[in-house]
């Protein structure tokens, strides 16, 4: 995964970058299976590796697929990134240990979720559609807004006949 990330950062052909990000998404999905998040892994494989790659390729078809050489050396972003990572790792030391059953995350509302109150064996589905249904409603509102925004952005192109057709 680190190799894929490194290659994404330093490859200048955007087509390779898009394919590498698909590879990265599949690797992330396997990691999520190992962490018991099977629903998330399925969504990541379908949406992260599938839909995102298709969207990026559609956008690449409308744009140039080669990145320009960077005009200046990236020392300032590198310094910012390294100092941020040092701060974050220092902060992570204050978090509970990995796999600690006494961590606060396991003690709060989750025992109730695992009680099978809504009679659906898949707890993730139960929480998504019943306990936190308003969150899911908000999510669909966000997706609808994004879709409306994309239509508003891309529809105006029809007035210029010299532009290529096709949506992203």
């Amino acid at each position: 995964m680190a190799v894929a990330v490194w290659a994404i950062a330093f490859t200048r052909n955007l087509f390779s970058v898009v394919v590498l990000s698909g590879v990265y998404s599949f690797l992330m999905a396997t990691v999520l299976v190992a962490l018991d998040a099977v629903d998330v892994a399925m969504t990541e494989a379908a949406v992260g590796a599938g839909v995102s790659t298709v969207l990026l390729l559609a956008a690449l078809r409308l744009c140039k697929s080669e990145e320009a050489k960077p005009a200046h050396k990236p020392w300032l972003p590198l310094a910012v990134s390294v100092s941020t990572s040092v701060l974050l790792v220092y902060g992570a030391w204050g978090l509970p240990d990995f796999g600690d059953p006494e961590a606060p995350i396991h003690k709060n509302v989750v025992p109730r979720y695992l009680n099978n109150e809504v009679d659906v064996p898949n707890v993730v589905t139960a929480v998504l559609a019943s306990f936190r249904a308003y969150d899911t409603l908000g999510e669909t509102v966000v997706v609808f807004t994004a879709g409306a925004g994309i239509i508003a952005l891309l529809r105006r192109r029809k007035k210029n006949p010299d532009n290529k057709g096709g949506g992203a």
Binding site: H106, V142, A146
Partner: peptide, 21 residues
Amino acid sequence: NPLPHVLILTAIVVGVSTLAL
């Protein structure tokens, strides 16, 4: 813990819509 899974399912879908936008 199922709760983070639910939150991240939402995050993935929202993430792909921001990417598309």
